[in-house]
Amino acid sequence: MDKLLDTVLQMLEGSQITLEIFCITLVLALPLGMLVALGRLSPVRPLSRLLELYIWLMRGTPLMLQLLFVYFALPMVGVRLPDIAAALLAFTLNYAAYFAEIFRAGISAVPKGQYEAAKTLGMSYPLTMRRVIFPQVFRMVLPPVSNETINLVKDTSLVYILAMNDLLRVARTIVQREFDMTPFLIAAVFYLVMTAVLTWGFKKLEAHYGKY
């Protein structure tokens, strides 16, 4: 019993790295994704094309490859980042691209008439975006953002290859040391709890904003 408790405690420590990557990525990638989406939709062609290229690269290559690139290739050209920063850079750039596409679809789905109505009421562009467009986009993107967020929980386990002691790596270390599969089961429970909490949270949000 003591051993089990000890295992759980060690894994709780591992889950901290996992949670850290998850939270910081989310906090950075959501606003960045919104900026990229607005840039993609802007009439400034070079900007829009550049961001299209960025999104294509991020979505067209494995996140694993991007992680390895930031971790191993960047130091070769003299850019040396701390482990966690390297992981966060790759995760944020990758997830911002996915969020950008979700937001872009959401913004494009708001009918032109909404902008026109706002304009005829004298609303400026920033006011229109803030008061009229974003609230509607927010509601529309909740389900896909919820999906991506749950993917992110599981994707954090990719830092495993960077020798960072996240939940999965801690589990494997114990499994190899003790020849006992329990840590894998515990890890599964940890991930399930995290995704369950998120699913619940997004359901609440959807219910709250779905009343119209």
């Binding site: 009918p111 008439g113 909404q114 026109e116 109505a117 009229v132 609230p135 509607q136 509601r139 904003y209 119209y212």
Partner: peptide
Amino acid sequence: FQQFNLFPH
């Protein structure tokens, strides 16, 4: 407008 264009939210 023909399509009302009320703010649905």
